[in-house]
C-alpha cells in the first residue's frame, strides 16, 4: 500500500507526524494575534519535523522557520489536513525534490480559506450547538450528566476528525492535494456543510430566540391580541425570525458585530420599555 511505500522511503517516522499533530492541537493559537493569527502556532507544531529534516543545516532551518511564520489562519480541526500535507511537502523538499517556497505557501493559503469555511460551519455552526442543546436539555434542571456528556463527546468527535485529517494529509501529500483540487470534493463537502448548517441554524432560531408582543387593540367590545390573533396566524415565531434576519442584514452591511449587538439590544430594550415587546 501507498502508506507502506511511504514509510520505507521517508525521512520521518509516523511518531514525528503524530507528535506534530498534538503540538498543533495544544498550541495552535497560544500566540494568537491580529497580525499573523495562527502563524506562530503552525511553526510550533511543525518544529519536531523541521528539526528532523533541517536540524543539521542552519540555513535551511532558518528558511523553513521564516517560511512558516507567514500569515496563517484556518479552522484548526478540519484545516489540520493542511498541516499533514505541509509536512509531506517539506519531507519531499528535504529529499531534494524541486518544491519551492511558493508551492508550500500556495498550498497553505489556497486551502486555509475553504477549509475554514467548512470547519467553522460544521464545528461552531452545527456540531457545537447540537451538542450544547443536547447537554442543555439534560442539564437545565441541574443534572450534571449533560455537562459530562458534552465534555466527553466534544473532544472525542473533534480529535477523531482532526487526527485523521492530519494523517491523511501527510500520507496523501501533494498528490492528495491535486486530487482534492481537481475533483469537486471540497466544493461537495462545503455544500453539504452549508446546507445542513443552514437547516440546523433555522431550528436553533426557532428554539432559542424569543420575542413576542403583549400589545392588544380594543375594538369596541372585542379585543385583538397582536401576538395570538395576528402574528401567530401569519407564522409562528415571526418576531424571532424577523429579528434574526434583520441581524443578518446588518452584518451583511459590513457592520461590526459589536455594533450590531448594540443595535439589536437597543431595539429590543427600547421596545420592551415601551411595552411593545
Amino acid at each position: 500500500m501507498a502508506e507502506q511505500e511511504k514509510t520505507e522511503q521517508s525521512l520521518l517516522k509516523k511518531s514525528d507526524v503524530v507528535k506534530s499533530f498534538w503540538l498543533w492541537m495544544f498550541f495552535y493559537v497560544s500566540n494568537y494575534n491580529y497580525e499573523r493569527l495562527m502563524a506562530n502556532g503552525f511553526v510550533h507544531a511543525l518544529s519536531p519535523v523541521l528539526k528532523k529534516l533541517y536540524g543539521h543545516d542552519k540555513e535551511e532551518m532558518k528558511a523553513a522557520l521564516q517560511r512558516h511564520l507567514a500569515f496563517f489562519n484556518t479552522e484548526p480541526h478540519f484545516g489540520s489536513i493542511i498541516g499533514g500535507m505541509t509536512i509531506a511537502l517539506e519531507e519531499q523538499r528535504a529529499k531534494g525534490k524541486p518544491i519551492s517556497d511558493q508551492m508550500i505557501n500556495g498550498l497553505k493559503t489556497g486551502l486555509m480559506g475553504p477549509l475554514a469555511g467548512i470547519g467553522d460551519t460544521l464545528w461552531q455552526g452545527t456540531l457545537t450547538p447540537i451538542l450544547l442543546s443536547f447537554a442543555l436539555s439534560i442539564s437545565a434542571q441541574g443534572n450534571l450528566i449533560g455537562v459530562g456528556l458534552y465534555i466527553l463527546l466534544m473532544p472525542l468527535i473533534m480529535f477523531t476528525i482532526a487526527y485523521n485529517l492530519w494523517m491523511k494529509g501527510y500520507f496523501l501529500g501533494r498528490e492528495g492535494l491535486q486530487k482534492l483540487m481537481a475533483g469537486n470534493m471540497i466544493q461537495k463537502v462545503m455544500t453539504v456543510a452549508q446546507t445542513m448548517g443552514g437547516i440546523v441554524l433555522g431550528g436553533l432560531t426557532a428554539s432559542f430566540v424569543t420575542l413576542s408582543s403583549p400589545v392588544s387593540f380594543h375594538l369596541g367590545e372585542s379585543v385583538l391580541k397582536l401576538q395570538a390573533d395576528v402574528l401567530d396566524k401569519l407564522l409562528l415565531g415571526l418576531l424571532p425570525l424577523v429579528m434574526t434576519l434583520f441581524t443578518l442584514h446588518l452584518l451583511n452591511r459590513k457592520m461590526k458585530s459589536t455594533t450590531v449587538l448594540c443595535i439589536i439590544a437597543g431595539i429590543s430594550g427600547i421596545g420592551a420599555a415601551l411595552g411593545i415587546f
Binding site: D120, G198, L201, G202, L204, T205, T247, L251
Partner: peptide, 25 residues
C-alpha cells in the same frame, strides 16, 4: 445565529434556514 449564517456563503441559505425554522416551530 446570524453570524454563523453570514459565514455560510450560499445562494439558497435562507431557504434551508427556513426549513429548519418551520420544522421546529
Amino acid at each position: 445565529i446570524a453570524m454563523n449564517l453570514r459565514a455560510i456563503v450560499n445562494k439558497y441559505i435562507i431557504l434551508f434556514f427556513l426549513i429548519g425554522f418551520i420544522l421546529q416551530v
